[in-house]
Nucleic acid binder design. Structure first.
Length: 290
DNA sequence: AATCCGTGGAC
DNA sequence: TGTCCAAGGAT
């Protein structure tokens, strides 16, 4: 007799969940939102110190809403995708302007915040408010692809069938569904990993379709590999690093030194300006916006 | 729907 | 060096 899937994963989670600060008993919806935005495409270990700095410096949305952009961008450090820092600041202002300074607790209102998509809205509902939500991140998608469908990895984008299966699997009860979301995500992060999954430590290995099929390699459509070297993204990163680490406005000549291709450099700098990550000053220098 | 958007570690 | 991967979202 096989243990039912959901209880087995919940039991595993009770014994193996990491002690992460955004899950602590004194967590706040604001801290959870900050963590979710930071964790997108970014490893936990790199998020931890930055998250602690942010929630200490800006314990509530109103505090971040009042912070100057340059301070916000510098506090983001090298987490990557620095537009997320501006999204969080804009979300904080929306919390103040439209939700009494609180992080909203409905899917629709969360989705309306800048930088909050389906995953983040669902995660805040579940992890901050203990509500039932279908939380489909890369970990959950991988676990379900393997356990339910015998595939090594999920497809490039969430399908309606995938969402329906995840919905059908989640407990109906709010608290149980929230626990399930955290548990299955944690299983994907710690055991059912993309590379070298630890099936020997998996609580549902005995009923995993993928393992039972001999762990066949993924053969479906692949998302095109993202290049980085030589792209505008790299140049933006180099330019912003120069602005971030300088106490004073940066002369154009110093920005010229970070990348040889003038056309690409100009394109990247224009992009930063358009995104609110750089400010061209009247004297020809550049600085972080205030 | 396909592309863009940072950064760094593992292999 | 190159590739893949890490709690996605916007356009």
């Amino acid at each position: 007799m096989l243990a039912p899937l959901v209880p087995a994963v919940l039991d595993w989670y009770a014994r193996h969940a990491r002690d992460l600060p955004w899950r602590a008993a004194d967590r706040t919806p604001w801290g959870v939102l900050v963590s979710e935005v930071m964790l997108a495409q970014t490893p936990v270990a790199r998020v931890l110190p930055v998250w602690r700095d942010w929630v200490t410096r800006w314990p509530r949305p109103a505090a971040l809403a009042a912070a100057p952009a340059d301070e916000v961008i510098r506090a983001w450090g090298r987490l990557g995708y620095p537009r997320r820092a501006l999204w969080l600041a804009a979300a904080a202002r929306a919390c103040v302007a439209e939700h009494g300074g609180q992080v909203p607790d409905t899917y629709q209102a969360l989705r309306a915040l800048p930088g909050v998509g389906d995953y983040t809205a669902s995660a805040v509902l579940a992890f901050a408010y203990g509500r039932r939500a279908v939380v489909l991140d890369t970990n959950v998608r991988r676990v379900l692809a393997r356990v339910l469908h015998g595939r090594a990895a999920p497809g490039p984008s969430v399908t309606v069938g995938e969402r329906a299966a995840a919905d059908a699997l989640a407990p109906q009860d709010d608290a149980a569904a929230a626990q399930w979301a955290a548990a299955v995500m944690e299983l994907g992060a710690l055991v059912c990993t993309a590379r070298n999954p630890a099936c020997g430590s998996c609580p549902v290995a005995s009923r995993c379709e993928w393992r039972l099929a001999g762990r066949p390699a993924y053969d479906g459509p692949r998302r095109r590999p993202q290049r980085f070297a030589g792209t505008d993204r790299q140049v933006r990163g180099l330019l912003l690093a120069e602005l971030r680490t300088s106490e004073h406005p940066v002369p154009a000549a110093r920005l010229d030194a970070v990348w040889p291709d003038a056309a690409q450099r100009a394109r990247a700098l224009d992009g930063l300006v358009a995104d609110g990550l750089a400010d061209p000053l009247p004297d020809g220098t550049y600085a972080l916006p205030r």
